[in-house]
Write a protein that binds this DNA or RNA. Structure first.
Lengths: 243, 243
DNA sequence: TTTCAAAACGAACGTTCGTGCTATATTGGG
DNA sequence: CCCAATATAGCACGAACGTTCGTTTTGAAA
């Protein structure tokens, strides 16, 4: 049995060449974390058990364990892996939009897509991790809090930049606005995870646009999708969420 | 040792007389659930272990276990107990306000207070439970979802009543508005649990009032607290959250 | 005071948890 | 082609998990 099917990932040109240069263990580690991140988003970082994870990857508990040295280290590595995925799937795409209101909106839009397209099996990894660890002091909690603070700061900065560009009212409070946008995101995530309610995304989108439009200047509102009330959103980049 | 301090709750007149009529086991059961609800709100319904709970109450695992028959039954009973506390602490007080916009606002206001005053050790019990169980099918998940749906329905109905009374625009969508208010609540809970950020309550309050005011008619806005921008809220009932 | 069901206990079950230790494969560089 | 390094497996551990069982304690009715 061993690590069958993990390392031997069809050696297809370019990508494979780059991976071949990586140490064997590094590839296994990555495979572990990819699985870990998905299990954790659905079952929680504590429900992420080493034995379960090992059997799901057809490897031994001890073999897997050796990569991390402790469960807490595994959890921290999982958080880090999730952060990288989040950056790749949400932050990076949003930063392709030009600085200002366009980017602010895209940060919201792509976040909603990231939950809807189920980048993680259990919805937003960090919303889940935050709820699980907010009552348990320790490095994991601290790191999760840090990462979410990063996200909120990104949101806030983008709003401030929109203000600087004269696209948003100067009297709008970026912290307040970022708080509201974030809350709406978490509300959509909650509704989708608990009820499978896809309409929640539309509702969050509507509310976010309302907030942004309310504070946007005449020149700024051009950076938001047309007011078209309908549910169909033909705006926003078509590009699929890349795996 | 035994159940010291649990059953023998200082036999002080009236209340005690009523409790004396209750079966002995019933009182113990209640004491268990009171503790369970607090542990669960902080450590999660799964982290709520029978052994831990027993030792925290200075009773034996088996003695405690006998009250429920299974862990799942204990979890369900805990959810039910939390629901009753929520109703007593949030819904009931809000329903003292007259039907319409006044009550809608009070539902929001008293919910924020319920988190701020730490009615549960780990913040909103249901926000935590929903995040924990949204990925684990079963009776517990179902019940949690039901209870939260109740809450959202209450919010929505109150909004609709405010519309009926001509206090809110007829074109405001109660479902949309309820979604937004709920999201803001969960956002405030998140910020407070993860960062201890008390300002989040003010931010949520501001945003909620903004939403309500935006849709309120001339006659309706009288039911919302004065616009006073400041952080100090002298409005709203003074009554302490009763234990 | 006696009686008896309800309630609480203590010990043990089989699992699974995280974590060590030791031995065996596997692998890339000389 | 071999060797040192690394990666993985195997096995065992103590603790804690939910659960079962037979016994003892308790308190209210008779």
């Amino acid at each position: 049995m061993t690590t069958a099917g993990i390392n031997r990932t069809g050696a297809r040109a370019g990508r494979a060449a780059a991976e071949a240069r990586k140490a064997r263990g590094e590839r296994t580690r990555q495979a572990i974390l990819e699985m870990a991140v998905n299990v954790a988003s659905a079952e929680g970082l504590e429900g992420l058990t080493i034995g379960r994870l090992a059997s799901e990857l057809s490897m031994s508990k001890s073999g897997l364990f050796a990569h991390f040295g402790s469960k807490e280290e595994l959890q921290l590595a999982t958080v880090e892996a999730a952060r990288e995925i989040f950056i790749r799937q949400v932050v990076r795409p949003a930063f392709e939009a030009e600085q200002g209101l366009a980017r602010t909106w895209k940060l919201c839009d792509v976040w909603l897509r990231y939950v809807k397209e189920e980048v993680f099996r259990g919805g937003c990894f960090f919303a889940a991790a935050a709820a699980e660890f907010d009552g348990r002091p320790g490095p994991v909690r601290d790191r999760v809090a840090e990462v979410m603070k990063e996200w909120l700061a990104t949101l806030r900065r983008s709003i401030a930049e929109a203000q600087g560009a004269g696209q948003l009212d100067g009297d709008a409070d970026p912290t307040q606005l970022a708080f509201e946008l974030n809350a709406l995101e978490m509300g959509a995530n909650w509704a989708f995870q608990l009820y499978g309610d896809r309409q929640a995304f539309g509702r969050a989108r509507t509310a976010m646009l309302e907030r942004l439009r309310r504070h946007s200047t005449r020149s700024g509102s051009a950076f938001l999708p047309q007011a078209g009330r309908g549910r169909r959103r033909a705006q926003s980049v078509r590009g699929e969420v890349q795996r």
